[in-house]
């Protein structure tokens, strides 16, 4: 192996500088492109709340599906005093669950996943419970905090 230093002439050096500059430009332009394609955050960013209507019109053992801030919400009247609200997006593959009054369970119609009244996954493929939302009756109105 020779110990002679590798000689770089002026033209080769300039070629390398130009190629390096082009590569740097390409990388620099990729940043705004990816940032542009990255989805902008939806909603106001503040904690929002949504009404599920008057409590007196909400029969025991029934459910309502709402949409707020672009997100779906399922509200269930479990008993006279108790309401529960969840994100109805199934933790398996993103289908929307529905309330089954007969069995008092929350069921995913896509792959027969079953959740209990606390949103816990009890049967089928869903790997996680449904994320809960806090729900309260404020001046006769059922209000879900997102």
């Amino acid at each position: 192996m020779s110990d002679d230093p590798v000689k770089t002439d002026r033209r080769t050096f300039l070629d390398m500088v130009i190629f390096g500059g082009l590569a740097a430009w390409g990388t620099a332009m990729a940043v705004p492109t990816v940032a542009y394609l990255w989805p902008a955050r939806s909603g106001s960013g503040k904690a929002a709340s949504v009404s599920a209507g008057p409590a007196k019109d909400f029969a025991v053992g029934t459910a309502k599906m709402l949409q707020a801030e672009g997100k779906p919400v399922i509200v269930i009247r479990v008993s006279e005093e108790l309401f529960r609200a969840f994100s109805p997006i199934c933790s398996h593959l993103g289908c929307l669950v529905k309330w089954e009054a007969e069995t008092r369970t929350i069921v995913c119609p896509c792959h027969a996943g079953i959740f209990d009244l606390e949103g816990k996954n009890v049967s089928g493929p869903p790997p996680r419970p449904l994320p809960p939302y806090s729900v309260a009756v404020v001046e006769g109105e059922v209000v879900v905090k997102l």
Partner: peptide, 26 residues
Amino acid sequence: TIGTEVAGSVPLVGPFAKRLLLGGDA
């Protein structure tokens, strides 16, 4: 929805790819 959920469950890059594909959460 199901197709993009499958893509989103790929470890590490999945959630990133899913959000980029969907342009949001759903």
